[in-house]
Simulated assay, not measured.
Amino acid sequence: LLSGGAPHTSGPVLMAGLELLAQLDTRHALQAFRGPQLHLFAGLDGLVPAEAAGELLALLPDVEIGLIEQASHAFLLEDPHGVAGAIQAFLHESGDD
């Protein structure tokens, strides 16, 4: 986990954010979007485990799933090159490069 550059946020503020996230349901919006979708998961993510990809694929069988193996929920900061590579490969496969 990143700790040196992470902002310091109080426990109640973090809990309020998690409660808000628990109430969000983006399934309809994801199903309504007709373009190609790439959903990246992190192998060490304690908040959104990579196993959630199975449920996503059950809901949206045509999406692309990627895994940033040795990263946690902050995978964008932990492995920016891995994320960029996954996005680049997805765009190349989609013909949008």
Rank of each mutant, 00 (worst) to 15 (best):
G85A: 06
H92W: 10
L38S: 06
G43Q: 02
L91W: 10
G95Y: 02
F75C: 04
L57A: 07
F41K: 10
M15T: 14
A42I: 05
D45H: 06
P49I: 02
I87A: 10
A32E: 15
E19H: 09
H92R: 14
A50L: 04
D97L: 08
A42D: 03
A52W: 00
A22Y: 09
A84I: 02
A53E: 01
R27N: 10
L59K: 05
G43V: 01
D25G: 04
L57E: 09
V13D: 12
F41G: 03
L47C: 07
E55K: 03
I68C: 00
E69G: 01
E69T: 03
P80K: 10
E51P: 07
H92K: 13
L60E: 08
G4H: 13
H73Q: 05
G11W: 14
G82M: 03
A6V: 14
H73R: 02
L18F: 10
D62Y: 12
I65K: 02
P7K: 09
V83N: 00
E51N: 10
F33Q: 09
A29L: 12
L44S: 10
A53H: 03
G82C: 02
Q70N: 06
G66F: 04
A84Q: 01
A52N: 06
L76S: 10
L60A: 05
L59I: 03
H81E: 12
G66I: 06
H81V: 15
Q88A: 12
D45G: 06
A74L: 07
L40H: 10
Q37N: 06
L21V: 09
S72K: 04
F33S: 13
L30I: 04
G46E: 14
H73I: 03
D25P: 04
F41S: 02
G46K: 13
Q23G: 08
G54I: 00
G5A: 14
P36V: 07
L24S: 11
A16W: 05
G54W: 02
G17W: 07
L30A: 13
A71Y: 01
A16K: 07
A74Q: 02
D25M: 03
L20S: 07
P80Y: 05
A84P: 00
L44P: 06
A50Y: 02
Q37M: 12
F75M: 11
P80H: 09
E78I: 03
L47V: 12
A86Y: 03
A84G: 01
A74H: 00
F33A: 12
L67G: 01
A89N: 11
L24K: 09
L18Q: 08
E69D: 04
H28K: 15
S10N: 13
E93W: 08
V63T: 14
R27D: 14
L60M: 08
L2N: 14
M15S: 13
V83R: 00
T26L: 14
H81R: 13
H28M: 14
L30W: 14
A22L: 10
L57W: 03
L56G: 00
R34N: 13
A58G: 07
L2A: 14
